[in-house]
Design a protein around this nucleic acid. Structure first.
Lengths: 104, 104
DNA sequence: TAGATATTTAGACAAATATCTAAATATTGC
DNA sequence: GCAATATTTAGATATTTGTCTAAATATCTA
């Protein structure tokens, strides 16, 4: 419980929303291999830079990625802390092991 | 393995989309305690039965819930198998521990 | 079988979303 | 300072989504 619960309720929605789009999931996966500039990330996708930037903004709002300007470029990297929070959240949606909840 | 990768790509999108809505996440959480009829689930929410039914359809399409008719009622329960698939998928989005120079 | 209850389906509508083009901002190298 | 490159912002548009009301379907009970 390091964070206020309200913080997480808000952030939670941002995170799930961010993950709902296949392009954004692909971006995260691409970042899996290491930090990359916006342009490099974009090479893998067939959409404009503007659209890409839109996706970055949503990922950033969800705190799933971090940015750092390096000269002309802006370098993106995964924020694994929030990813781990998300995992915990997911676990919360899964019934307890050996759980009842089936037929009666 | 076990499932074709195409199956999962399709299902994956359905699952993430299903989780993007806060009402649907709340439904899953409610089912956490055990199977429940549509009406019982609905008691917790301030939306019409029709809207509820819409959410159920999306959860079902994502295979996150199972249904069983019991007389007049239709009983919903969690499908933890797909939830576990989802967890694996999430892990896939998280960078490997100690990845890329960063020991912990 | 008729009426009551539970749930889904159909159709409409407003709000949210992904995408685009064009323009703005930031940075580098000459 | 100026042109080139990288990225974001603004504004427009078509699609998707969540919700509603009304009607349809399924089941139970008297």
């Amino acid at each position: 419980m390091g964070r206020s619960s309200r913080w997480w309720v808000v952030k939670q929605q941002a995170v799930f929303r961010a993950l709902a789009d296949p392009t954004r999931r692909a971006i995260l996966k691409r970042l899996h291999g290491g930090a990359m500039s916006a342009g490099e990330i974009g090479e893998a996708f067939d959409i404009t830079g503007a659209s890409l930037s839109h996706h970055f903004a949503i990922l950033k709002q969800a705190d799933l990625v971090r940015t750092e300007r390096r000269g002309q470029y802006i370098v993106y990297s995964l924020n694994s802390t929030v990813m781990e929070d998300l995992m915990r959240l997911m676990l919360d949606l899964i019934p307890p092991a050996g759980g009842r909840g089936g037929k009666r």
